[in-house]
Design a protein around this nucleic acid. Sequence first.
DNA 1: TTGTAAGCGTTATCAG
DNA 2: CTGATAACGCTTACAA
Lengths: 341, 341
Amino acid sequence: MAKKQATIQDIANALNITASTVSRALNDHPKISANTKEQVWTTAKKLNYQPNHIASSLRKGKANTIGMIVPRINRHFFSNVITGVESVLNPAGFNLIICQSDESFQREKQNLKTLITSRVAGILVSLSIETKEVKHLEKVQNSHIPLVLFDRISDEMNVSKVDNDDEFGSYELTKHLLNEGYRSFMWIGGPRNSIIYKNRYNGYKKALKEFKLNDTKFDCFEGTPVLDVAEQYIQEYIKQKELPEVIFAASDYMAMGVIQALQANKIKVPDDVAVAGYSNEPFASLISPKLTTVEQFSEEMGRSAAKLLLEEIESEEDTIIPRKTTLKPRLIIRESTIKKK
Amino acid sequence: MAKKQATIQDIANALNITASTVSRALNDHPKISANTKEQVWTTAKKLNYQPNHIASSLRKGKANTIGMIVPRINRHFFSNVITGVESVLNPAGFNLIICQSDESFQREKQNLKTLITSRVAGILVSLSIETKEVKHLEKVQNSHIPLVLFDRISDEMNVSKVDNDDEFGSYELTKHLLNEGYRSFMWIGGPRNSIIYKNRYNGYKKALKEFKLNDTKFDCFEGTPVLDVAEQYIQEYIKQKELPEVIFAASDYMAMGVIQALQANKIKVPDDVAVAGYSNEPFASLISPKLTTVEQFSEEMGRSAAKLLLEEIESEEDTIIPRKTTLKPRLIIRESTIKKK
DNA sequence: TTGTAAGCGTTATCAG
DNA sequence: CTGATAACGCTTACAA
């Protein structure tokens, strides 16, 4: 049972031909006779031959593997991006090594190192919340591995990127709130050193400014974008101050935390306080009240990023001109922000 | 800029020593002088040397990569299993290639082929819904690649496995429903050729039998375990027949579909009809009413499967004795099944 | 159309 | 402690 895997040499021996011929036959090289191809095919099957990608990668100087680093795989958004990436990469003959940074800068660096030493053909990265500098990414470029950033991108890197127009999405959402008639606002979001929260905040402010609401005292909270953090913040807040008419949480999880804190205090959503979220997590349409939020086209983002990367990998050029794709998100209006007439 | 990556040979040349010495130094071989090691380390850094895992894998005859096939990555359950797997594998120096079968038998076969040709050190598989035979898995064994099945396992394969005690979880949940006083039941679940739904159904029937409820006419629906399918089924059902006291949907998504259909018809949950789900998706605690369900320890399942696989990989033995780990799930009682007193 | 031979970057073995 | 050499399995000029 502990027999070795068959190699092209084994096939060659069985047929009294050379390994090169076998190699060519297996790769459907045009200058190999149909007859030999046939023979090679059948004995390959007979010997249960499985090509060794490692050897061929070494010889060819590149692997058919793409590396991808995401903060967390169990986020609906990222797992859909991954699906999008695979839908482009697999048909092109690549497969994906997925790494999680777990929002840690250290792990992100470690992941990158692993991918570089694995000689992946290209790397896709969405930066961790902790990541504030990008020297580790420059190492990828030094290693001449094509790199594409998506979603959590960095302005400092001169590489291809795909992002969502978070400012636009946030602006649209805020405009909707303003049009509904809300005039006192609270902002809750993730840390603003993360580009996505910065942009969402900017879109929010921009809309408010258009309604001349920029000189009001707006409450504004930044924290880890998870349910508990938002819930606790609101629980505390309720004890101390008056609530605004509407709370815009720049993450659905935070919005959920807000809603739970409000409902626990018998405050009705949206009648007493309206709540909006961001990113259309699966639960957003399932909870009560259904959550107004912004949908990001996550699979499309994955496909775009993968396409950009593929082009760079397949490009013969020495110098690649980085490109940027920006996806427009879509406002989804649901019950949680509809004002009673 | 298009310079080649530095190799150990380059380091050797720079120091007037041989590649073997460099290799040993980099691997911290005991019989290399501290002095040479020091020199090698510094010039490696200077040349921006990155070890080539492909070459070393080829030479050593094995890769430091593990393959994993899941039906879908964007299911909370599976993404958590993946996290568990990584938490064991990464510290052990392995990384993970994740493939999605998308519940398709064809894609599962294709994925397996990719992993075999990539000469991964081991493979973890959860079978697709479509998968009814396991010949493709036998090919993995023929290739002498350790294989571990998890969650959606097959009795036909004589390999190590990790599963959830679905029968137990379902039994416990049904007992809870019976203890609450419900006496007329409807079952909704995924196709019963899938082992997990079969087991859940068996647990359900077992509990009913204990209450002598087995001769009643139970309504029972099998379909793709997604929200829409369950919702439509109930919408149709309501038009035709009377509803039971409680509906046990063996998937939270189906339970959600049921709840939406009921609420759309002004039927109150749980007052008019109680609903239970299975697997504690994130939304289960967020919806209204909060959903009674069964929690599966997904990360733990990942860790267990990875540990079994690692042991097989690191085992020197020729023949491995397959082992099976069964995890006990936990009943989570929430509002959706609590009977008004 | 096929064979020959060299080499991808490492590491294992044997020798010194 | 270090060096020389071969080999892992495959691909690809160059020859024939």
